[in-house]
Design a protein around this nucleic acid. Structure first.
Length: 584
DNA sequence: GCCGTTTTCGGCCCGACTGTTTTCAGTCG
């Protein structure tokens, strides 16, 4: 999949155009880049199949950008972009990442101080050359110095698994502080928004929204910026403040009055693309939509704003869950009352992937069972690693048999159904890591690839398809093998994998580990089209991991999954119908 | 450069905050 790579190229080009004060084109390029990034299919494949015509079908991609993409795919570069790059300082795109530096200021820095890279900029700051420049001052120089520091510390995105608990922590700390300072104000409407509320796999900044009457807003802001977690206050106003917490992440707080709370929640939740589309609908219907509310164009009167529900309703749309707001067709579906009824946390009845001390888990079988039972699960599968996974203390057959015995004993003591299982290595040739007579004794077989990633797409596809054709395999674990921020998915033809899985009635895992989230939202969306079923599994290595269910659930919802699509929402009596060995 | 129930040209989201300047430009989301 080269979509991200091509999107990057377009973003970079947009930055350079911006620097050269070219109007509107940067916006067009960024829009195209964003759509390519979110495009479900590999656009290289689209180009191979349908040529340039296929590329222009992508929203935001017209004749010209399609030409550039084609050139890039054919030759590995774009002549025009190279030319453009040659005219801009070498570090332009990097410098544009410095908070507070936009195209105009950068141009000035390049023209008057010959600043071309971040290290040039650092130099200019330390020798105080910046503050003497017209339009700059002492304050800007200090801010830029700090911005460079922040850029160097962490300019990468925060994984959902880190951002979500962090946001909850900050909100809870803020509430505690406010209860002490101003005990009589309503604290029920403080919520995280942005890509975090949409449960995207990684988050840039954490955005928090709070409702408060005007007279209470100041006090709330003061409480926020003086939280002990705050490392640096970037800006502070009556309605918006921006801080960087000690861990290095940016957090924004916005405060709005009650009559605008719903509109602000809608607006700040995004996505940007979803909102632009929504605004267009508002305009067509004779309204104007902003973060303050929905207003009648003629009278200027507010017609909605207290709640999101009210806004969607007035626009003739069903309420759209945050996870769907990516402008991937949800608005059209909402207009036709054809939105999916998304799978919910309460629907989940079990967890089909977890480890114990038998392989690389940290806890005993009993500890895992106790915790799962406390979570009111109806069933779990114990999936310790198979024998060839030496590094993860994979189980020899004898060890596994001992585990079966313990499972049997536990089954007498606990109400919950405990399934015999294993995360079985899919070997290089696509065969499974235990002989058939062992596999058939397992209730569920979870197959996974853990090694030998660096093979051709054909080879990896063949390996996985062979495994999917094995009658003993039930679930394909973390199907893409990616590790967020560390390792790309291995080269594999997902079309063929999904086809084989569908033909053989196999279940696709949505792995909840924050570093995996695999399948991701786009692949889930694609896989659903093949009629596949999924399981949302934590791949727990300790009891604390059992709660990471919500991260995978978020991806499932982002992939438009309904309860029926997810087999671990089924009661055990129905689950038995899904897996062959349980059925027989 | 893209796009179209305001359609093949002329728009393209828009409001808050900061710093520098003294009424506003630049940046951000």
């Amino acid at each position: 999949m080269r979509n991200r790579e091509i999107a990057e190229l377009l973003y970079e080009t947009a930055d350079i155009m911006e620097f050269q004060q070219i109007e509107w084109k940067p916006r067009a390029y960024r829009r195209a880049a964003q759509n390519i990034e979110n495009f479900g299919e590999d656009i290289e494949k689209v180009y191979e199949r349908e040529g340039k015509k296929g590329l222009t079908e992508i929203p935001g991609v017209g004749e010209s950008i399609a030409d550039h993409i084609a050139e890039y795919l054919e030759t590995g570069k774009v002549e025009k972009f190279e030319e453009l790059k040659g005219k801009a300082p070498s570090g332009t795109t990097e410098l544009m990442e410095i908070r507070g530096l936009g195209a105009k200021k950068m141009k000035k820095l390049a023209d008057e101080l010959e600043i071309k890279t971040i290290s040039d900029l650092k130099d200019a700051v330390s020798t105080h050359r910046l503050r003497r420049l017209e339009g700059f001052g002492e304050k800007s120089e200090e801010n830029i110095a700090r911005a460079i520091e922040n850029y160097e510390k962490s300019h990468s995105r925060i994984p959902l698994g880190k951002a979500l608990p962090l946001a909850e922590e900050i909100i809870s700390a803020l509430k505690t502080e406010l209860r002490i300072r101003t005990p009589d104000i309503d604290l029920s409407k403080i919520i995280y928004t942005g890509s975090l509320r949409r449960l995207k796999e990684t988050i840039g900044d954490i955005d928090i929204l709070a409702e408060a009457k005007e007279r209470d807003a100041g006090g709330m802001m003061n409480a926020f910026v003086s939280l002990p977690e705050v490392g640096q206050v970037v800006s502070k106003g009556k309605t918006r403040s921006s801080v960087i917490i000690k861990e290095g992440f940016g957090i924004d707080l916005r405060i709005v009055p009650p009559e605008s709370y719903g509109a602000a929640l809608q607006y700040f939740t995004g996505s940007k693309e979803h909102n632009i589309e929504l605004r267009n609908i508002a305009l067509r219907e004779g309204y104007k939509l902003s973060e303050y509310g929905l207003y009648s164009k003629d009278s200027g009167q507010q017609v909605a704003g207290r709640s999101e529900e009210e806004i969607y309703r007035k626009l003739g749309l069903k309420y759209i869950a945050p996870e769907l707001r990516e402008n991937r067709g949800e608005i059209k579906a909402a207009a036709k009352n054809a939105l999916p009824e998304l799978v919910d946390a309460e629907d989940l009845r079990g967890d089909l992937h977890m480890h114990t001390k038998y392989s690389e888990g940290a806890e005993s079988l009993e500890t895992m069972i106790k915790k799962a039972e406390a979570m009111e699960y109806e069933y779990i599968a114990i999936t310790d690693h198979s024998r060839s996974q030496k590094i993860a203390n994979g189980m020899e057959i004898e060890t596994m048999k001992a585990q079966w015995k313990e499972i049997e004993e536990m089954s007498k003591r606990f109400r919950m159904k405990i399934l015999r299982s294993s995360e079985v290595e899919i070997l290089k040739d696509g065969s499974l890591d235990y002989p058939d007579e062992i596999l058939k004794e397992l209730d569920v077989v979870v197959g996974a690839v853990h090694s030998g990633f660096a093979v051709s797409e054909r080879e990896m596809t063949g390996r996985i398809v062979t495994a999917l054709e094995n009658r003993h395999l039930d679930i394909l674990a973390h199907p893409s093998g990616r590790l967020l921020g560390k390792r790309e998915a291995y080269a594999v033809n997902f079309g063929k994998v999904f086809e084989a899985a569908a033909a053989n009635g196999k279940v696709m895992e949505i792995n909840c580990q924050p570093s995996r989230l695999d399948l991701n939202d786009e692949l889930i969306f694609r896989a659903k089209d093949y009629g596949l079923k999924f399981c949302i599994s934590t791949d727990s290595h300790a009891v604390s991991d059992l709660t990471s269910m919500r991260y995978g659930l978020g991806q499932a919802r982002r992939g438009w999954l309904e309860k029926e699509d997810v087999v671990n929402t089924y009661p055990y009596s129905k689950l038995k119908g899904v897996f062959k060995k349980l059925r027989d």
